[in-house]
């Protein structure tokens, strides 16, 4: 890996060794690394601060990223350290050896209901912690942001990040940038319409898309066409019931339908999801 001397100095000071590149994003890249003291593997996200919006810089670089270090949950990717140097942000975090849920589903297709139940319960637990303990919304729940550790436990990563990058404060709407395109399938009707929305309920919606995807091996709505997607989302609950595989239990379909409620007011909360019959 080509690495400049300042970056190398940061890594040396913190006792990390950089290994191969894991992924490339629009505003940075993720490397695999090793903590030299105990040979533990870590993921190192390197973000280019000059490519970030002013709002992102103000909100996260200074304060809120520090709060993420305090976040401790079995099903949330732990952040060990955050360093700002050489106009870059270095985020040292837990390494998950089995990749993302996207990779898993692309390889193996839909999950059995029992596996989906285990993973979904873990994710609900993580989100409940983020919503109630940290009083934050994740804002970018998607298969790419669910990682699998060496024991195949799911871990939620990247919260509070991507959405903020694409939020335009002056226009009060989301920017149609490349970063947002990949997240389209997980958008609730309010986001599709670029209307003000409750971020916690938007997280809940994305969890519904996730659960549907786990059980069906596909996305519920036609996200490539936003107006068609909105039609499908608001044809409720007829549409969502009609596209679910007929092998899926009534309890699972009931939970999916309660989550993918286009009306924010009546859409269930994470706490209510955790008490649903299917998760008992």
């Amino acid at each position: 890996i080509e690495i400049d001397s300042k970056t190398q100095a940061v890594l040396d000071r913190k006792n990390y060794r950089l290994l191969e590149k894991l992924s490339q994003g629009s505003f940075g890249e993720v490397y695999k690394g090793e903590f030299k003291i105990d040979h533990r593997l870590v993921a190192i996200k390197i973000l280019d601060i000059s490519k970030m919006s002013m709002k992102f810089k103000e909100r996260y670089v200074a304060r809120e990223l520090k709060a993420l270090i305090e976040c401790r949950h079995l099903n949330v990717v732990q952040i060990y350290d955050i360093i700002r140097s050489n106009n870059r942000l270095y985020i040292f975090m837990e390494y998950c050896s089995n990749g993302t849920l996207t990779m898993f589903i692309k390889k193996f297709g839909a999950c059995s209901e029992s596996l989906a139940r285990i993973w979904f319960r873990q994710l609900v637990d993580a989100l409940l912690y983020i919503h109630t303990e940290l009083k934050m919304a994740h804002r970018d729940i998607k298969f790419d942001n669910v990682l699998l550790d060496e024991k195949f436990n799911v871990k939620l990563t990247d919260f509070g990040f991507a959405k903020e990058l694409a939020w335009n404060d002056n226009k009060q709407q989301l920017e149609l940038t490349a970063t947002i395109c990949g997240t389209e399938p997980f958008m609730c009707p309010q986001l599709v319409q670029r209307r003000p929305y409750n971020p916690m309920k938007a997280d809940v919606w994305a969890m519904g898309v996730l659960l549907f995807g786990l059980l069906n091996g596909r996305f519920p709505f036609n996200w490539a066409d936003p107006s068609l997607m909105l039609k499908e989302q608001t044809n409720y609950p007829k549409f969502i019931r009609s596209v679910s595989k007929n092998t899926i239990s009534e309890e699972a379909n009931d939970l999916i339908a309660k989550i993918l409620d286009p009306d924010e007011q009546t859409r269930i909360t994470v706490l209510e999801i955790s008490k649903h019959l299917w998760l008992k």
Binding site: F143, R218, P220, W223, K245
Partner: peptide, 12 residues
């Protein structure tokens, strides 16, 4: 069938 057709739509 319609179900098979649907199952091939919107891949992850």
């Amino acid at each position: 069938t319609l179900k098979t057709l649907i199952s091939k739509m919107n891949p992850i």
